[in-house]
């Protein structure tokens, strides 16, 4: 459906939010039901599919590949660090708006947002310095294999398969779940002398390790300011009524890892503080529940594996 809304609908939604009864019966702070599964794509190092009841469907994959380290020519930083490369793409089948070049801007915005929130070593030093927690949470030094030469590069790719509002939150939930699911093979480095190194990737499926710092990854809470109030998990029609949007990235300990404002409306300073505070507490609860769900699934899979049963993922045949 093209992004159109009638004045009467807008008014109805606005007044509904004012009296805390949204058009689908939720309250301002309520999320829709989220369906989550990890490990859906076997070719990846880690993957997850996140669906929000009512439409939004995001598939996130993480692929670990070996590549050269990237050293910042000015600061000399990054010689002992791995990398995270993010990309978000909206499939044209997700919404009529995404056809042709329609999704380009959104893809760019989401990709940049993800790059900024997930990787510590951004080219923009002000970002990592403002976020006290070390924004991305992931320990990039652990991803380095031979300092100054080789490292792991994590390619985090999100594909938006269907659009039903609140893309940002879904993409970041998916990213967290996919990284949580990721296993990187262990490597053995040999010192050949003269500063020469050689390494070997162990291809034993059991000899893998999780991404260190995965539990510190932030997720996003998108707050949509409509009228004088703000709501979470907006539906597509609610997004059309949004005057200003604030994306708050929060980690497990409730620390602010980044924020981004969208749309052309303004937010009063007092409301802004309230929204950030609200985003922090909401994000923390969200992470807790997400982690509980991920842990539950990981435990169930492990139990099955120990019993020698095959682990079947439902993937695309699930409801």
């Amino acid at each position: 459906m093209p992004g159109l809304i009638s004045p009467a609908e807008r008014d109805y939604i606005l007044k509904g939010i004012e009296c805390n009864i949204r058009a689908d019966g939720r309250q301002r702070a309520d999320y829709r039901e989220v369906t989550l599964e990890t490990g859906v794509i076997s070719q990846t190092s880690g993957s997850a599919r996140v669906r929000i009841a009512g439409g939004t469907d995001v598939l996130v994959s993480v692929k670990a590949e070996i590549g050269p380290v990237q050293v910042d020519p000015e600061t000399g930083d990054g010689a002992d660090k791995g990398q995270i490369v993010c990309s978000v793409e909206c499939a044209p089948s997700a919404s009529q708006q995404f056809e042709g070049r329609g999704a380009d801007d959104l893809n760019n915005e989401l990709t940049q947002m993800m790059t900024r929130f997930l990787s510590n070593s951004t080219s923009n030093p002000s970002v990592s310095s403002t976020a006290s927690a070390g924004a991305g949470g992931i320990n990039l030094s652990k991803l380095c294999i031979i300092p100054g030469q080789q490292c792991w590069i994590l390619f985090v790719d999100a594909l938006v398969l269907d659009y039903g509002g609140n893309l940002v939150d879904a993409v970041f939930m998916g990213a967290r779940a996919a990284i949580y699911d990721t296993r990187i093979p262990k490597t053995e480095v040999q010192d050949l002398g003269d500063g020469q190194f050689e390494f070997e990737v162990l291809d034993d499926a059991e000899d893998t390790e999780f991404v260190e710092g995965r539990e510190n990854m932030p997720i996003c809470v998108t707050l949509n300011k409509i009228g004088a109030r703000h709501i979470v998990d907006a539906s597509p029609l609610e997004e059309l009524c949004t005057e200003a949007r604030l994306v708050v990235a929060v980690n497990r300990s409730g620390e602010l890892c980044g924020q981004q404002k969208g749309h052309d409306g303004g937010i009063e300073p007092s409301l802004l503080l309230e929204m950030i505070q609200f985003g922090k507490t909401t994000g923390q609860t969200l992470i807790k529940q997400l982690d509980a769900r991920l842990q539950e699934e990981a435990d169930a899979d492990l139990a099955k594996r120990q019993r020698g049963e095959p682990v079947h993922k439902l993937g695309f045949f699930a409801q």
């Binding site: 702070a29 309520d30 999320y31 039901e33 989220v34 369906t35 989550l36 599964e37 669906r51 979470v232 909401t282 609860t285 969200l286 529940q289 997400l290 509980a292 769900r293 539950e296 699934e297 439902l314 045949f317 699930a318 409801q319």
Partner: peptide, 12 residues
């Protein structure tokens, strides 16, 4: 605030 996470179910 309320949110719930679920694992997918088989369509029967």
């Amino acid at each position: 605030m309320s949110i719930s996470f679920h694992s997918p179910a088989v369509r029967t």
